[in-house]
């Protein structure tokens, strides 16, 4: 796990234009790395695209983690985002018409400061940081992704939940006119996910607004998405439009879809098989073979196991 805070400068002190320019720089470099990677083939790419090559800002982070990052191209062309289609290539191909700005987030439920917030207002005063996390999909593949975002706890503290709030529920926006596959009943729209309050407050849990230091592309859940690195990827609800603080455990979309396959917790666990495949191993993309041993809590055991003390993880899956 790598957490590195940027120096304590209020975001107001950073000129937006410079940030913007920097971001373009990242995108260009990242895209270049991706293109080069494709030309060389997947094998050559592995281990080549490091954060160092992308920007000196990431220097100290790379030295802490010896697993190579996935390229910008890999992260943005292989997505599960059923609102734009069920094939992995669909979200990148079909999300062009989606407009992530302007964006409002509705905060509701048991909270002292409910309301419909402009995203920029909601983020003001919150320090953005880079986080390199493994992403383990329930489908037994994984990537390493440099997110850009902030701890969810910062937002929670800002809106002041009431003591009765035990869970947090988040929903994806519904815009069938822009989200091509919301016109079909593939899932029960809107996509709903949730966390227990202690999970939501955990410092590893972030809301991402970008990756590789640049704004999130639409296919990755622009402009705001959840990232919980010790849980399967489907917990990471994308394009978040609503955040509610509730007393009861929310029923997330995949529980509605297929209750005996996916539970609420969905912690990465090599010992508990999915009914249709083993979770003991994974394919670390862009590799070919499913030969990467899946780690308990996706390798974040030391940080998160206390959350589940005394819980039977085979039952609460």
């Amino acid at each position: 796990m790598i957490i590195r805070r940027k120096p304590d400068i209020a975001s107001s002190e950073i000129t937006p234009e410079r940030t913007y320019l920097n971001r373009r720089h990242f995108v260009k470099k990242a895209a270049a790395a991706g293109v080069l990677g494709t030309a060389l083939g997947p094998r050559a790419l592995q281990g080549k695209t490091t954060l160092q090559e992308l920007h000196p800002r990431f220097d100290s982070m790379t030295s802490e983690m010896d697993e190579p990052l996935n390229s910008y191209e890999e992260i943005t062309t292989y997505n599960n985002f059923y609102e734009f289609g069920t094939r992995k290539s669909d979200p990148a191909e079909n999300s062009g018409a989606f407009r992530p700005r302007p964006w409002k987030v509705e905060i509701g439920g048991m909270v002292n400061k409910p309301g419909e917030y402009e995203l920029d207002d909601l983020l003001s005063g919150i320090t953005m940081e880079d986080r390199v996390y493994r992403l383990r999909c329930v489908e037994a593949w994984s990537m390493v992704i440099p997110w850009y975002g902030f701890p969810l706890s910062a937002l929670i503290n800002k809106v002041e939940p009431q003591p009765g709030a035990k869970y947090i529920e988040m929903k994806t926006i519904v815009r069938p006119e822009e989200m091509t596959h919301q016109r079909f009943p593939i899932l029960d729209w809107p996509y709903i996910e949730g966390l227990r309050m202690d999970e939501a407050m955990h410092p590893l849990t972030i809301l991402a607004t970008g990756l590789y230091g640049a704004d999130l592309p639409n296919q990755n859940g622009a402009p705001l998405r959840l990232v919980v690195p010790w849980k399967y990827g489907f917990k990471g609800v994308k394009s978040i439009q609503s955040i509610r603080f509730v007393e009861e455990m929310p029923i997330n979309t995949w529980q509605v879809q297929n209750s005996h396959e996916y539970g609420f917790f969905a912690n990465v666990n090599p010992n508990v098989s999915h009914p249709r495949w083993s979770q003991a191993r994974e394919t670390r993309l862009p590799g070919f073979r499913k030969d990467f041993d899946t780690m308990m809590f996706n390798g974040y055991t030391d940080q998160v196991q206390h959350l589940y003390a005394g819980m039977d993880l085979a039952r609460w899956k």
Partner: peptide
């Protein structure tokens, strides 16, 4: 090499 990120 044009089968995408997950050729398998």
């Amino acid at each position: 090499g044009s089968l995408g990120v997950n050729p398998v």
